[in-house]
Deep mutational scan, measured.
Amino acid sequence: MAAGGDHGSPDSYRSPLASRYASPEMCFVFSDRYKFRTWRQLWLWLAEAEQTLGLPITDEQIQEMKSNLENIDFKMAAEEEKRLRHDVMAHVHTFGHCCPKAAGIIHLGATSCYVGDNTDLIILRNALDLLLPKLARVISRLADFAKERASLPTLGFTHFQPAQLTTVGKRCCLWIQDLCMDLQNLKRVRDDLRFRGVKGTTGTQASFLQLFEGDDHKVEQLDKMVTEKAGFKRAFIITGQTYTRKVDIEVLSVLASLGASVHKICTDIRLLANLKEMEEPFEKQQIGSSAMPYKRNPMRSERCCSLARHLMTLVMDPLQTASVQWFERTLDDSANRRICLAEAFLTADTILNTLQNISEGLVVYPKVIERRIRQELPFMATENIIMAMVKAGGSRQDCHEKIRVLSQQAASVVKQEGGDNDLIERIQVDAYFSPIHSQLDHLLDPSSFTGRASQQVQRFLEEEVYPLLKPYESVMKVKAELCL
């Protein structure tokens, strides 16, 4: 049975990233139509530049190519590739079939990587351009969430054990800070992308030097003109047959890092959902379990974690691919890159769409948070109580021993009897502590235990987050809708 299948058929496997999760716009960027249309555009740009620099290419040939950029006979191309065992030459023939007058000058002087690699770089750039505003929107939604809850005390956790208090907004800023680093890295790697350009079979530009009869300047002009037509500021000066596969490492490393950030955020949300302090959106008709109707599973956060793990592992592909590119190139890269580049971007696209949807509907339960604080705060307040007693004339050592005994009794009630923490009640009825009984409410005010959390939130948002989001103001209103 021949390899390949009808990918629109229910009898043929289709990647869930495309069929179930990723956005239509990201799927289109990695589609065959987008790819092969870009090949034709690159052939047109090459012909236009070659004509401008004096090669015998007519206006009629150029116009014929322009008129057929979208006229792609995919069936013919597939048949040609089956016959020739070469995808680029299959599309040269297919393009030439609908451009008979231009057929002889299509791909003039070029090698397969002229269309293959340059198209990949265009796709990487455009895919990054799709991700950047999506990530900015996630940051914006979380920034709104953090600002609104900047002063809401909550129990902090280290080692997932109760620690000092923080605020809900401050905790959210930990998430935002990681995503801001990801946004900066995505922008950097996007701006650092260079075009492969017009380089020939081993990167020496020998074929173009021959076409222009040894004119170095025209060869350099050709490279520059096509690079500018493709919208790049610069091209690699040095290439082998391909652009260095280190570029793929750079791009997928940034995406993998984004995956790590999203995994951490969504894990926190899942843990908070278990504590009943916070939940992701839950639709009115949504079913959490087929057997347990009360369940409210954090399905979206779980999906993000599941896909983020996949995204983090994909960076190993370009690392290994770059390491086995012998001399000017081997074909070890080809099949692998067809999979890992598309999957990385479709996965990143999915987790950003999902995280935006989550961040637009996060639900906080202040009463649950308050109750958990009441359970733990008495123990945390013991040092403040000791200091207040010393100020009232008591002995630190005597007070410490009193607190120690009462704390152990209260802990026994919590752990052995399943009761509430009654340390404060014990202190309130103990005559030894009568000098500070009137101060206990103040000493137990949760806001006095959150330090500068709310001020940190305000400063972080104003100095770091809002300036970073400013270039994306025009796209901030787009909502994230999930079908599944």
Results as ranks from 00 to 15, higher is better:
residue 6 D to S: 11
residue 7 H to Y: 14
residue 14 R to V: 13
residue 23 S to P: 05
residue 23 S to F: 08
residue 25 E to T: 14
residue 29 V to R: 07
residue 33 R to D: 11
residue 33 R to V: 14
residue 40 R to T: 03
residue 41 Q to L: 12
residue 42 L to W: 00
residue 43 W to D: 01
residue 46 L to H: 05
residue 46 L to C: 08
residue 48 E to V: 06
residue 49 A to C: 10
residue 49 A to L: 01
residue 52 T to M: 10
residue 56 P to V: 13
residue 58 T to P: 07
residue 58 T to N: 12
residue 69 L to N: 07
residue 72 I to Y: 12
residue 74 F to Y: 10
residue 76 M to F: 09
residue 78 A to C: 12
residue 78 A to D: 14
residue 81 E to D: 08
residue 87 D to G: 01
residue 90 A to K: 03
residue 91 H to T: 02
residue 92 V to K: 02
residue 92 V to S: 08
residue 95 F to S: 05
residue 97 H to N: 13
residue 101 K to G: 13
residue 106 I to T: 08
residue 107 H to Q: 02
residue 109 G to C: 03
residue 112 S to F: 02
residue 112 S to H: 00
residue 113 C to M: 06
residue 114 Y to C: 06
residue 120 D to I: 07
residue 121 L to G: 08
residue 126 N to G: 13
residue 129 D to Q: 12
residue 130 L to V: 14
residue 131 L to Y: 08
residue 136 A to E: 10
residue 137 R to D: 08
residue 139 I to V: 13
residue 141 R to E: 14
residue 142 L to A: 06
residue 142 L to V: 10
residue 143 A to L: 06
residue 143 A to K: 04
residue 146 A to H: 00
residue 153 P to I: 05
residue 154 T to Y: 04
residue 160 F to T: 02
residue 160 F to S: 07
residue 161 Q to F: 00
residue 164 Q to E: 00
residue 165 L to W: 00
residue 167 T to G: 04
residue 172 C to D: 05
residue 174 L to I: 12
residue 177 Q to W: 08
residue 178 D to G: 05
residue 179 L to Q: 05
residue 179 L to D: 06
residue 180 C to I: 15
residue 181 M to D: 13
residue 191 D to L: 08
residue 191 D to G: 07
residue 194 R to C: 10
residue 197 G to V: 01
residue 199 K to E: 00
residue 204 T to Y: 03
residue 205 Q to C: 13
residue 207 S to E: 04
residue 209 L to Y: 12
residue 210 Q to H: 07
residue 213 E to R: 15
residue 213 E to Q: 14
residue 215 D to A: 14
residue 218 K to S: 12
residue 230 A to T: 05
residue 230 A to D: 01
residue 243 Y to I: 10
residue 244 T to A: 13
residue 248 D to L: 04
residue 252 L to S: 14
residue 252 L to T: 14
residue 252 L to C: 14
residue 254 V to M: 08
residue 255 L to E: 01
residue 266 C to E: 06
residue 276 K to Y: 08
residue 278 M to L: 14
residue 280 E to R: 00
residue 288 G to M: 02
residue 288 G to S: 07
residue 289 S to A: 02
residue 290 S to I: 01
residue 296 R to T: 12
residue 297 N to H: 01
residue 300 R to E: 05
residue 300 R to G: 05
residue 302 E to V: 00
residue 304 C to S: 10
residue 308 A to Y: 04
residue 308 A to H: 03
residue 316 M to R: 04
residue 316 M to D: 08
residue 317 D to E: 05
residue 318 P to A: 09
residue 321 T to G: 08
residue 327 F to S: 07
residue 331 L to H: 00
residue 334 S to V: 01
residue 336 N to T: 15
residue 337 R to Q: 03
residue 342 A to C: 13
residue 342 A to L: 07
residue 344 A to I: 05
residue 348 A to V: 15
residue 354 T to S: 15
residue 355 L to T: 10
residue 355 L to K: 04
residue 358 I to F: 08
residue 361 G to I: 00
residue 362 L to V: 09
residue 364 V to A: 06
residue 365 Y to A: 11
residue 367 K to E: 07
residue 379 F to I: 05
residue 380 M to T: 02
residue 384 N to V: 10
residue 388 A to Y: 06
residue 388 A to E: 07
residue 389 M to N: 05
residue 407 S to A: 10
residue 408 Q to I: 08
residue 409 Q to M: 11
residue 411 A to T: 12
residue 416 Q to K: 10
residue 420 D to K: 06
residue 421 N to D: 05
residue 428 Q to A: 09
residue 428 Q to Y: 09
residue 430 D to A: 11
residue 432 Y to D: 09
residue 434 S to W: 11
residue 436 I to E: 04
residue 437 H to W: 12
residue 441 D to C: 08
residue 445 D to P: 04
residue 449 F to E: 05
residue 454 S to Y: 13
residue 456 Q to T: 06
residue 465 V to K: 03
residue 466 Y to D: 14
residue 466 Y to E: 13
residue 477 K to T: 13
residue 481 E to V: 11
